[in-house]
Amino acid sequence: MSNAVCDFYCEKILSGLLDVPVYFEKERVFAFHHTNPLWEHHVVLLPKKHVESLLTLGEEDNDLLLELMRTAKMIAGDFMARFGAARIYTNLGDYQSSKHLHWHIGSGTQLRPY
């Protein structure tokens, strides 16, 4: 993976430097169980390609975005079936601590403050 921009997900997660419990993986997307979860069930979904945020996706990323959305739908469907509820969100600007597009998918009791 050659990314001009370094961020936590590229540098630690996708490089394999930090071992995380994998939830789902395909050629272009990666989902893992959050290591410091906000909810009882908390998965982070990201593209393997570095994309800074939802706002920086280009037309050339349309297929990638569809794959991410299909994967988010699959994870949320799993959470709905097992836990009866799910939430999906991405952060932008100051709310986005790591400048790599990612979605949080969660369910259950909130374990810590945002």
Rank of each mutant, 00 (worst) to 15 (best):
79 F>A: 02
67 E>F: 04
85 A>Y: 01
70 R>A: 09
51 V>D: 01
36 N>C: 08
95 Y>H: 07
75 I>P: 08
85 A>W: 00
26 K>A: 14
26 K>Q: 07
99 K>A: 15
35 T>G: 01
55 L>Y: 00
8 F>N: 06
24 F>V: 00
102 H>L: 09
79 F>N: 03
111 L>S: 02
33 H>M: 03
40 E>W: 01
98 S>R: 00
24 F>S: 08
111 L>I: 10
109 T>H: 06
10 C>A: 10
61 D>T: 03
98 S>K: 00
111 L>K: 05
7 D>I: 01
70 R>T: 03
27 E>V: 04
75 I>R: 09
113 P>C: 09
18 L>K: 12
88 I>K: 05
96 Q>G: 00
5 V>P: 05
56 T>A: 06
104 H>D: 11
54 L>T: 08
3 N>E: 13
103 W>L: 13
22 V>Y: 06
59 E>C: 03
55 L>V: 01
49 K>L: 15
68 L>Q: 04
27 E>S: 12
63 D>T: 04
31 A>D: 13
84 G>N: 11
47 P>V: 08
22 V>H: 03
15 S>A: 07
81 A>I: 01
29 V>T: 14
86 A>K: 08
105 I>F: 10
27 E>L: 04
24 F>H: 11
110 Q>T: 12
2 S>G: 08
112 R>V: 14
1 M>E: 07
88 I>P: 05
36 N>R: 07
106 G>Y: 05
67 E>C: 04
100 H>G: 06
94 D>Y: 11
4 A>N: 09
20 V>S: 08
55 L>D: 01
89 Y>D: 11
91 N>M: 10
107 S>P: 04
32 F>P: 07
3 N>I: 04
42 H>W: 11
1 M>K: 12
56 T>N: 06
53 S>N: 14
22 V>A: 03
12 K>C: 05
71 T>F: 04
69 M>F: 02
46 L>V: 02
98 S>M: 06
52 E>K: 05
106 G>A: 15
83 F>Y: 15
106 G>I: 12
19 D>S: 15
15 S>H: 04
68 L>V: 03
87 R>K: 12
